[in-house]
Design a protein around this nucleic acid. Structure first.
Lengths: 342, 342
DNA sequence: CTGTGTTTGACTAACGTACGTCAAAAAAAT
DNA sequence: ATTTTTTTGACGTACGTTAGTCAAACACAG
C-alpha cells in the first residue's frame, strides 16, 4: 500500500540494508552485478527515496543565495522585500535564503558576486542576469563547483543555468503590440518605444516581440526607434518629451522598462484629448494611479511572489535531482486595465 | 544557529522531554503552571515543530479528495487530467489524491459526493462548487468532522470553506469589458453575452463585472440580456444566431462559459468584415484556432495547473494549521491575444 | 592452499518527533 | 501521617534514511 522503503528493496534484491545504502549513495565497494540487482529491485518496486527522512538524517539544509540589482528601480526593490518575507517561511523547509545586491547593468559586479557565492559554498544561486562574458564565465564556474544556477526575471543566453524563471519577454512584447495596435486602430500614426537599457535581455526581447507584431499586424502604425531612458524618471521625461515634439502624430507609447514617473510627467503636458495610448510594464504606485486616471491604458506585470516561489521550488528540485514540471517556471504576463486592478 | 528542537525547549523550561511532548500534542496531565513555562520557552526560542520529522514519526499521509463536475466541458476535462498528473508527484509529499466526478450544475449530486468523502475520512476536500442549500449544509458537516474544505474555480457564498482558489471572476468580467469596450470604440452598437448557467457562481460574477464596466465606461455600447447556452455547442450556436439576426448591430460578443465551438459556428456564417469583436473564456483547441484565424480577439484563461498546485499547498497548510500567504490562492486571469499564444 | 584484497552483512547511533509504559515525585485528600 | 490522585521524569521503540565500524564471506593470484 504505502511507499516502498530501503528495507523492501533490500529484501527483494536479496541483499542487506547496507548494500542498498551503498548503491543509493554512490559509495564504493559494490560489485557491478550486485548493484544491478539492487537497481532492478528499486525499479520493480518503484522505490523513491523519502527526501524528508533523508534530510532529517543528514541534517541537511539548503543554502540558496540570491543576487539582484540594487538601485532605485521599484521592481527590484519589491523583489528584495519579497525575499525578506520568503526568508522567514523558507526556514520551515530547511531553506536558508541570503541576498546580495549588486549595481544594475554591471556585468563585472555581478560576476564578482557570483564568485563570492561560490566561495561561500551555497547550494544554489538565483540571479537576475546581466548579459556579459564575465557573467557567463562565472556561471560556468558555479556549475563546475556543483552549485545550481537559476536565472530570474532576466535570462542569460546560451548559459549553463539550470532554469529560467520569469515571463516570456518576447511574448510580453507581442502582447503589448497586440493591445496597443488594437487600441490605436481608430487613428493611424507613429508608435514610440521607451526602453531602459539594451544590456539586459528582457528589454531586448520585449522590443523584439513588440516590433514583430507591429510590423506584421499593424502596418499602418510606424514604430520609431526606441529611446533608452536607463530606468531613470528624469531622463525618460526628457527623452519622451523630445520625441513627442519631434513627432506630433505619435498615437501610442510602449514603455518596456522603468522610470514610469518620468513617462507620466511627459504625458501630462499634453491635452487629454490628444494623448497617445500607453502600455507600460510593472504595476507600481505610479502606474496604478496613471491607469486609474486614464493616462495609461494597460500595464503588463510579472508576479514577483510567484516568481520567487517558483525559483525556490525549482532550486530544491535541481539540488535533489528531481524532475520539475516545466510549467513551474513559466510565469504568465499579467495584464492590468483600469478595470481589473487588484 | 539552527532551529530549536523539543530538547531545547525542555532544557529552557526546565522540564523533561515528555512534558514538552504532552504540551505540544495536547495530552492530559500537565499542571497549568508547567504548561505555561513550556509555552514561554517555546516562544522565547521561537520553536516551531519540524513538520517533516513529525510526519515521519506518526507515519502521517494526507488524504485529499477532489470533487469536480463531469461532462463534456473541456475545462473540467483538463482539470481531471491535471489531477491525474498531480496524483503521481504528490505521493512524494505524502499526499494521496482521489477524485470523484459528479453531474454538472447538480447541487444534490455534489452534496452526496461530499457526504461520501466525509465517510471516507479524508483529511481535506477540494470542490468545484455549485450553489445550493444542500451543498452548504454538507460543507458545514465536513467542517464539523474536522475536514478542511477548499473551493476551486467556482466559490460558495457565505460558506464555511477554508479558502477559495481561482480567479477573481468579477475582475475577469471587468477585464473582458475593458478589452471589448476598447476594441469596439470605432463603431458603437450592441454587445451580446453568452453564458452557461446562472447556477454557478463564476458565471454570475463574470456577468456582474462585465456589466459594471460596460455601463460605467462604455455607455455608447448597449449590453443585451445574456442567453444561457448550458455550455453546449449546439445550443450556443442556435441562441447566438438568433441574437445576431434580431440585432444586426451587434459589435461585440462576450462568452463567459463553455460551448465555444457553437459560438464559432455562428460567427462563421457572417462576412469577416461584419463580424463583431469577440472575447471568450478558456483556451482550448477551438478557441486557439479561432484566435489565430482572427475570429476571436481575446481569450481569458485560468491556469489549471497553478490552481491545483495552490489548492494542494493551501490544503496542507490548513491541515497543519500553518498560515498561508493570501496571495497563494489568487490566480490571475490570463489574457491571450493572437500574439501571445503559448 | 595460503595470503591478499574486495565485497557483503550485521549492528549501532543519529536526525526530530510521536507515543506508550512504568515508576518516582509531588500535591491533594483523608 | 497515610493514602489517593495527579503530575512529572526516564526510558524504549518507531518512522526512513545516513553513516559509520567490524567481522565474516568471498574472489582471485601466486
Amino acid at each position: 500500500m504505502s511507499r516502498p522503503t530501503v528495507h523492501d528493496v533490500a529484501r527483494v534484491a536479496n541483499v542487506s540494508l547496507s548494500t542498498v545504502d551503498r548503491v543509493l549513495n554512490g559509495r564504493t565497494g559494490v560489485r557491478a552485478a550486485t548493484e544491478e540487482r539492487v537497481r532492478t529491485a528499486m525499479k520493480q518496486l518503484g522505490y523513491e527515496r523519502d527526501i524528508m527522512a533523508a534530510n532529517l538524517s543528514r541534517k541537511r539544509n539548503y543554502a540558496i543565495h540570491f543576487v539582484i540589482p540594487d538601485g532605485p528601480n521599484s521592481f527590484m526593490r519589491n523583489l528584495a522585500a519579497e525575499l525578506e518575507t520568503h526568508a522567514q517561511v523558507a526556514l520551515r523547509d530547511r531553506t536558508e535564503i541570503s541576498v546580495s545586491l549588486v549595481p544594475p547593468f554591471d556585468g563585472r559586479g555581478l560576476a564578482a558576486a557570483l564568485r563570492r557565492a561560490r566561495e561561500a559554498k551555497v547550494d544554489g544561486v538565483v540571479m537576475v542576469a546581466t548579459e556579459s562574458a564575465e557573467v557567463r564565465q562565472a556561471v560556468l564556474e558555479l556549475r563546475a563547483a556543483g552549485i545550481q544556477v537559476v536565472t530570474l526575471v532576466s535570462d542569460l543566453s546560451a548559459s549553463a543555468r539550470g532554469h529560467f524563471v520569469g515571463i516570456d519577454n518576447v511574448a510580453a512584447g507581442r502582447t503589448a503590440a497586440g493591445l496597443l495596435g488594437r487600441f490605436c486602430q481608430a487613428r493611424p500614426g507613429r508608435i514610440a518605444i521607451v526602453a531602459g537599457s539594451m544590456l539586459v535581455r528582457d528589454h531586448v526581447e520585449r522590443r523584439l516581440g513588440f516590433e514583430q507584431v507591429m510590423h506584421a499586424d499593424f502596418p499602418t502604425l510606424e514604430v520609431l526607434a526606441p529611446v533608452e531612458g536607463g530606468d531613470e524618471a528624469a531622463r525618460v521625461d526628457r527623452l519622451l518629451t523630445d520625441v513627442l515634439q519631434a513627432y506630433p502624430d505619435v498615437v501610442g507609447v510602449y514603455s518596456l522598462g522603468g522610470g514610469n514617473r518620468g513617462l507620466r510627467k511627459a504625458l501630462d503636458r499634453i491635452d487629454a484629448a490628444d494623448r497617445p495610448r500607453v502600455v507600460v510594464h510593472e504595476l507600481t504606485e505610479q502606474s496604478r494611479t496613471a491607469l486609474q486616471d486614464g493616462v495609461f491604458d494597460a500595464v503588463l506585470q510579472q508576479d514577483i511572489h510567484k516568481e520567487v516561489t517558483s525559483a525556490l521550488v525549482i532550486m530544491r528540485n535541481l539540488i535533489e535531482a528531481v524532475p520539475t514540471d516545466p510549467r513551474t517556471g513559466l510565469i504568465h504576463t499579467e495584464i492590468f486595465l483600469r478595470d481589473n486592478l487588484p
